[in-house]
């Protein structure tokens, strides 16, 4: 497998400063949702700092704002106020289109329910974002094949998601998230639908990419035993940090 070092893609990425100590810097992130007449304050001014190469868990009880925070940091949602700086770039002024382009080149996602496209087989799911980046057929096929081999699915390249177990699908999802060598991998409860053996496989993969390639990972989880894999935990309660970030 080729070495998965972080890389930049797109014009915006060229502006990024690689040597910043913090790859993510969230300043007073506020996110409120309207549910009918009621306003729910999901995040109430959360400050977050994550170093390059860190494996961070976001934890907290249900409704504490874990996924909401991940979505803000992963540019899947826009905070009502506050700033998110990724690799030195302030993302608060970005349009939806610019955010999409930034995600394509710099961020990777693993969702709780895998979120694979059912009409694409494993390798196609993985190389879709590489195709979108304009890579040649040879490049994207070889990259996708390499990363699928790295997650232990080299023999299932052409299998449709419907023919795979949950654990295998989640590994494809991990491969998809890492195929374009993102700056940061965001994972939203990636083991929630998996048994403990499959969960362990996924977390082992995360750890491997984190340790071997310095992959920055931000993961939402509610399982205490996952903590043995991460460097640090961000604890949330009612949309606020409950303890100081404890950097190892």
């Amino acid at each position: 497998m080729e070495n998965h070092t972080r890389k930049e893609g797109g014009k915006e990425a060229e502006k990024l400063t690689k040597n910043d100590s913090f790859i993510i810097e969230g300043i007073d992130i506020v996110r409120t949702f309207k549910m009918g007449e009621v306003e729910v304050r999901a995040l109430r001014g959360v400050p977050v700092k994550i170093r390059r190469g860190e494996f961070v868990a976001i934890m907290g009880p249900s409704g504490s704002g874990k996924t909401t925070l991940l979505n803000q940091l992963g540019l899947l949602d826009t905070p009502n106020s506050g700033k998110i700086i990724i690799n030195g770039m302030d993302t608060s002024g970005m349009s939806e289109k610019e955010k999409g382009k930034f995600r394509l080149h710099n961020l990777g996602y693993v969702f709780q329910d895998y979120a694979l496209l059912p009409e694409l087989n494993a390798i196609e799911n993985v190389y879709l974002s590489l195709m979108m980046q304009g890579k040649s057929k040879k490049e994207y096929e070889s990259s996708a094949s390499d990363i699928l081999n790295a997650v232990g699915l080299g023999d299932r390249l052409y299998q449709l998601p419907s023919k795979m177990s949950g654990g295998q699908q989640q590994r494809v999802s991990v491969a998809r998230a890492l195929a374009h060598k993102p700056l940061i991998l965001f994972a939203d409860e990636p083991c929630a639908n998996l048994d403990s053996a499959a969960s362990k496989q996924v977390l082992d993969l995360f750890k491997k990419f984190n340790e071997n390639d310095g992959q920055t990972i931000v993961m939402v989880t509610h399982e205490d035993w996952h903590l043995e894999y991460v460097d640090r935990v961000i604890n949330l309660m009612d949309g606020m940090l409950v303890e100081k970030n404890d950097v190892k």
Partner: peptide, 15 residues
Amino acid sequence: RQIGVQKAIGIEQNV
């Protein structure tokens, strides 16, 4: 949901 996932991974809306 598939459209949402495609957008999340950076596939452009026009595409």
